[in-house]
Computed example of a mutant assay.
Amino acid sequence: MSPAKVHPQQEKTPIGESPEGNATLAEIARAAEVSAPTVSKVLNGRADVAPATRTRVEELLLLHGYRRRRGSTAQSQLIDLVFHELDSSWAMEVVRGVENVAREEGLSLVLSESAGRLTPGQTWVDGVLARRPVGVILVLSDLTAAQRAQLTSRNIPYAVVDPAGDPGDDVPSVGTTNWQGGLAATRHLTGLGHRRIGVVSGPSRMMCSRARVDGYRAALETAGLPFDPELIREGEFHHEAGYAASLELLQLPDPPTALFAGNDLQALGIYEAARELGLRIPEDLSVVGFDDLPLTRWIGPPLTTVRQPLIEMAETAARLVLDLRRGARPATTRVDLATKLVVRSSTAEPSR
C-alpha cells in the first residue's frame, strides 16, 4: 500500500524557518498547542486567556523572536507615558515635553503611575498591549527583560527618560549630564569659599543620584578638600526627605555652611529646616538645588540650582520613540542633554 500523499498546505513549517526569518502566529500556535485566535488574544492583551496558557505563549513568543509586522493591526493614536511617581511639578515638566510632540503628531497621552515602583507591574503591561499605542515612554523607571520582550513582539517601541539604572546598550534612553551638574554645583560653592559642603542626595538606587554625588566628590578633590561621608545624607526626591536629612546635617557638632540638594524639592525641605533652626539663607547657609523647576524663581530667596532641560529631554524621548515606530534606527541609543548652573540668591560666601 503506497504511503498517503501530504498536501503541500498541510506540511508544517519549522519555527524559525518562515520566509522572513521570523516565527509566524500560526507557528507559535502550533508550538503552544493552542489555536491562532488564542495567540492573537495574548498578543492583544486580552484577559480571557488562562494564566498558564498566556505564560506558555509568551515564552514561545520570546524564544522564537516573534515580532508583529507594522501595520498588521489597528494602532491607537496614543503614547503611553509611565512614571514611578506622578506627584510633582518635575513630572509635569516631563508631561509638557511629551505633550508638545504628541500635539504636533496628532496623538494623545495615556498617563500611568507605578506607585513608587521603579518597574511597572504586569497589569500596566497588559493595559499597554490592549491599547496598542504607537510607543511607550518610561520616566525614572525600567522594564524587566520579559516586559521588554512583550513590547518588542508587538512592535511597540519604548524609550526611558532619566533611567533609574543602567538600561543597557539596547534600550533607547534620554538623560542629562548629572555628573557635570554635581561638579558645577559644588565648584560654585567651593569658589565662594565653602569648605564644609553637605549633600542631601536622592536614592542611591537611582543612577542620576549616584552621578550627582560623584560630581560633588570630583569637585571637592579638584579644590583640595577631603571627602567626608558624614556630610552625605540620602532620601527620596521629596520635600520631606530634604527637610529630615538637612536637620541631621545642620545639627552636627561641626555643621556644613552649604548644602547641595539632589533636586529642587529636597532644596525646599532644606529651606524649611533652616527656618526652623533660625538659619538665614544665604547669610548662614548656602543652598543649591537641581532641576530648575519654575517655582525656584519665586521662593525666597530664589534658588541657585542646576538646570536640567526636562521639557527637551521628554521631547527628545518622544521623537525617538516615533522614529523607531517608523522604522528608523537611531544613531545612538543614549542621549545626554547638557545641564547648566543657574546662580540666584540662595548662595553666598560663608559667614564663618
Rank of each mutant, 00 (worst) to 15 (best):
69 R>C: 06
273 A>D: 04
167 P>H: 04
155 N>G: 13
121 G>Y: 00
235 G>Y: 06
202 G>W: 02
70 R>V: 06
95 V>M: 11
2 S>T: 14
271 Y>A: 02
47 A>L: 12
32 A>I: 09
71 G>F: 14
285 L>M: 06
106 G>D: 13
39 V>K: 10
168 G>F: 08
284 D>A: 01
132 R>I: 06
194 H>W: 11
130 A>T: 11
297 R>E: 14
215 G>P: 07
38 T>D: 00
18 S>Y: 04
249 L>V: 13
242 G>E: 05
326 R>V: 02
4 A>F: 08
197 I>M: 00
50 A>Q: 12
112 S>T: 15
324 L>Y: 00
230 E>S: 13
212 R>D: 01
168 G>N: 04
100 N>C: 15
335 V>C: 10
258 A>G: 09
235 G>R: 02
225 L>G: 02
121 G>L: 01
184 A>T: 12
265 L>P: 00
156 I>Q: 03
254 D>K: 08
211 A>C: 14
106 G>M: 10
202 G>F: 01
159 A>M: 09
272 E>P: 03
271 Y>I: 01
275 R>V: 11
54 R>S: 13
293 L>Q: 04
43 L>G: 09
72 S>G: 09
282 P>D: 10
161 V>L: 12
136 V>F: 07
229 P>R: 01
116 G>W: 06
6 V>T: 14
165 G>K: 05
210 R>K: 13
135 G>T: 07
134 V>A: 12
324 L>N: 03
15 I>R: 03
42 V>L: 10
169 D>R: 13
149 A>N: 08
63 L>V: 13
113 E>N: 14
118 L>K: 03
75 Q>W: 08
142 D>G: 10
126 D>I: 06
35 S>C: 12
105 E>G: 09
59 E>F: 01
169 D>H: 13
43 L>W: 05
209 S>T: 10
43 L>N: 02
178 N>Y: 05
210 R>F: 06
298 W>F: 14
47 A>Y: 08
171 V>R: 01
46 R>V: 13
209 S>L: 09
46 R>E: 11
215 G>F: 00
320 L>R: 12
237 F>W: 11
165 G>Q: 12
136 V>K: 03
237 F>N: 09
159 A>C: 13
14 P>H: 04
343 V>P: 06
156 I>K: 02
228 D>R: 14
265 L>G: 00
97 G>R: 09
29 A>Y: 04
17 E>F: 10
213 V>P: 00
337 L>M: 00
177 T>L: 07
219 A>G: 05
40 S>C: 02
257 T>I: 13
304 T>W: 00
134 V>N: 07
14 P>I: 07
45 G>W: 06
189 L>E: 04
338 A>I: 05
125 V>S: 15
317 A>D: 00
296 T>Q: 06
53 T>G: 06
208 C>A: 15
348 A>P: 00
248 E>I: 03
18 S>P: 02
70 R>W: 04
59 E>T: 13
338 A>Y: 05
289 G>T: 05
194 H>N: 14
108 S>T: 14
307 R>K: 06
101 V>R: 05
190 T>R: 09
108 S>P: 04
9 Q>A: 14
131 R>L: 15
125 V>Q: 08
39 V>E: 06
17 E>Y: 09
178 N>G: 04
247 L>W: 04
57 V>T: 09
85 E>C: 11
